[in-house]
Design a protein around this nucleic acid. Sequence first.
DNA 1: GTCTATATAGGGATAGAC
DNA 2: GTCTATCCCTATATAGAC
Lengths: 211, 211
Amino acid sequence: MSLPTPAVDADSTESVPRARRGRPRGSTRGRILDIAQELFIEQGYEKTSLREIAERLGTTKAALYHHFQRKEDIILELHLRLHALGRDALDELAALQDGQEQVAAWPGLIDQFIDSVVEHQALFLLHQRNRNAFERILDNDRHRAENDDLEQRLRGLFTNPGIPLAQRVRMVCSVGAVMGPLVGADHLFADVPPAELAEIVRGAAHDVLGG
Amino acid sequence: MSLPTPAVDADSTESVPRARRGRPRGSTRGRILDIAQELFIEQGYEKTSLREIAERLGTTKAALYHHFQRKEDIILELHLRLHALGRDALDELAALQDGQEQVAAWPGLIDQFIDSVVEHQALFLLHQRNRNAFERILDNDRHRAENDDLEQRLRGLFTNPGIPLAQRVRMVCSVGAVMGPLVGADHLFADVPPAELAEIVRGAAHDVLGG
DNA sequence: GTCTATATAGGGATAGAC
DNA sequence: GTCTATCCCTATATAGAC
């Protein structure tokens, strides 16, 4: 039931005592990423200037360029964090042969997905609110090959003729049903214990699939 | 079962023969809005320059300023189109007294909502992909009072203690379940007849509510 | 690793002729 | 209603000292 906890921290220099804010990141590079994530969620990627990021970090624009060559590279790294979350689940799914088995595995994957969304809510929110920016780096960057086939695999699943259309649509519905309360709704259920909220969402998602 | 078809066309000069592209808009102002909507969906509001809009329209930047005082006013008008879609449904909901009745009315509203999303898919997509920009004009603009209480009413419904939490969460889930296949998924089910797709989604949304 | 200073480009917006 | 020309500002990004 527990998530694989992928190698999200591969970037930061891990020789630093880990006691900063929410996430364990002491390195300047990690703090830049955290601040950027916040601002990109609040204002959007395009509307957030490097000056703002630097200001909140207590430094200057030029200093940022020592850690990231281009502004794009910041959101790219955030993108990789998100993809790391989905990789294991998708690998698991790809191991199954035909559509029938994949459909059978879906409810279990949704459970994992819910846990993942609860744990890394901000990352999913970032993606949802900056979808255009995320898509733009797909064209530009060399990391394309190793990454976007992930989305290809998902597309392949949802368009697989071996699975009845109604079943495929409901699979997408289940994802939407999860994202709605956990990501989309601003802080509508902020006062509800995450575990309780997750349990309700779990039930709803399963009802979508079982109908 | 049919939607109210709100006064979305209130802006355009309707003395012009209506035979342009998808939507019936001959006026320059209307065409600007259509082009802007496309580009804002493809690239995002911030990343789309007035020069691009003018180019695609076959004119110049300055000409746009004859129709809209500021760039912001373009997305504001698009915003109003969207709000017009939700107003009648929300009014209907507000007429009901207690939570029990509102919960009972929800499945019917979801049906209306699905029809609305199918018919005005682009408008919902625009909103989903430019949420930050839409939120920004709420602060800036004088149209605040008459508009954003709509969202307040929705918030009020979803946080109403008179309705059990599980029921409220599932209501939000149902919205997500609808948005998932109809708006979020890029063109995953583009080859499926809209009516057939809507029917499947309808079933899924009701299963979320009835569980 | 961080600073000041600067290059360069493109954005929104306005003036005023036609 | 549309054009050309221009103003002003802010953005990304770079150079080079410390």
